[in-house]
């Protein structure tokens, strides 16, 4: 076997703050994942197309713009339309505590707010990949 777990780390919408996404990408690389980095300003539709073409097992979306509810709503709609419900979705960024439950209800498996430890992200991803 010559297996590596493939993960998409993504930025959506009008949000140019990608330091977090890049640090998470490098951390996951160092934990043995193959990380496809989306680059900035993607639409939810772009992300789902990328997830399909790249055959990833998980999508991590970093949002610091405040538009997380809108973007995740569209993302899950698109995932459903393209029959991609088996992909694990997690979020990172500046998310107010009161929105975390709303995101969880939409289908976000885990929200890592700023200040989360990198080890925690790696541990969680390894534990949960392939579980949905």
């Amino acid at each position: 076997m010559n297996r590596s777990i493939r993960v998409l780390i993504a930025k959506v919408g009008l949000d140019g703050h990608d330091r977090g996404a890049k640090i998470v990408s490098r951390t996951l690389r160092d934990a043995g994942f193959e990380v496809i980095y989306s680059g900035l300003h993607q639409t939810p539709k772009d992300l789902v197309r990328t997830a399909i073409q790249e055959d990833v097992r998980a999508i991590g979306v970093s949002i610091l713009s405040g538009a997380h509810l809108e973007h995740f709503q569209k993302l899950f709609l698109e995932l459903k339309n393209r029959d991609m419900n088996q992909v694990l979705v997690f979020a990172g960024g500046v998310i107010p505590p009161e929105d975390i439950e709303l995101l969880r209800e939409m289908g976000v498996q885990r929200v890592f707010t700023s200040g989360s430890s990198l080890d925690e992200i790696v541990f969680w991803l390894k534990e949960n990949i392939g579980k949905i």
Binding site: S25, R29, D30, A31, G32, I36, S38, G39, E54
Partner: peptide, 13 residues
């Protein structure tokens, strides 16, 4: 990576 077998694939951007 030779050490960890991980990679950052960034050509799509």
């Amino acid at each position: 990576s030779k050490r960890t077998r991980g990679a950052v694939l960034g050509d799509r951007i």
